[in-house]
């Protein structure tokens, strides 16, 4: 029992310390904002986003990333925030036909661009062939990275079809093929913490890329 009390006590202490440090963290930035008022106040800008074929006009803080605009303002929560620093690929969306990291671009920079998220690729009743292939091959475990994996994979097949080489393309001047080695290299920007990589590669190589 003594041991159990100790644990409870230390856990409560931990929570108190946690709360204190949260306050300590917020204080300096408030102080800094007060010292430089010109940098402290939010700047709002209008932007017209074209997402999955729908045109939406938004008034956003200029700091809003495309990812936050999609998730918090358009409530398209399929695109995931993993690291928010361009290291994990969970936020991958397709802009004007190319895969990009929505956490590393600003919403205001996307004026007039065509954005496709996982919600725009397919629907539960009519899956995109890549979505169906991920289901067939069990290309996930927890599923958090999956929307980014699928958006990335769809664009990867497009890149191979367009003849864009990769690091593992033996001959730079020959058209690349959708081999497992090519898929692995091209998908290296999408991290799967569950380690479903082998099934993800199976899922992608099973989609006929020449028609992608």
């Amino acid at each position: 029992m003594d041991d159990s009390n100790d644990i409870k006590l230390s856990r409560r202490d931990f929570l108190i310390v946690g709360a204190t440090s949260a306050v300590a963290v917020t204080l300096p930035s408030t102080a800094a904002a007060a010292e430089t008022p010109t940098t402290g106040s939010p700047v709002v800008s209008k932007v017209t986003l074209q997402v999955n074929g729908n045109v939406r006009e938004l008034s956003l803080d200029t700091r809003t990333t495309l990812l936050d605009a999609l998730r918090e303002h358009l409530h398209l929560t399929g695109s995931k925030k993993g690291c928010d620093h361009g290291q994990c690929g969970a936020c991958t969306v397709i802009v004007d036909g190319r895969r990009v990291l929505s956490c590393l671009t600003l919403a205001v920079m996307q004026e007039r661009r065509a954005i496709t998220t996982i919600e725009g690729l397919g629907t539960p009743g009519k899956l995109h062939p890549m979505q169906a292939s991920f289901v067939k091959h069990d290309g996930y475990q927890c599923g958090y990275c999956t929307p980014g994996q699928i958006c990335s994979a769809v664009a990867v097949l497009g890149e191979i079809k367009a003849g864009i080489p990769s690091l593992v393309s033996a001959d730079l001047t020959a058209p690349p093929q959708a081999t497992p080695a090519e898929i692995r290299e091209r998908m290296s920007g999408n991290i799967c913490r569950c380690g479903a990589y082998s099934n993800i590669v199976d899922a992608i190589t099973d989609v006929p890329w020449r028609n992608a």
Partner: peptide, 16 residues
């Protein structure tokens, strides 16, 4: 130059 570029970052980052 092609090889150096393809050795850097990820496909998503190279697109941007």
């Amino acid at each position: 130059l092609s090889r150096a570029l393809l050795a850097g970052a990820s496909g998503q980052l190279r697109n941007a």
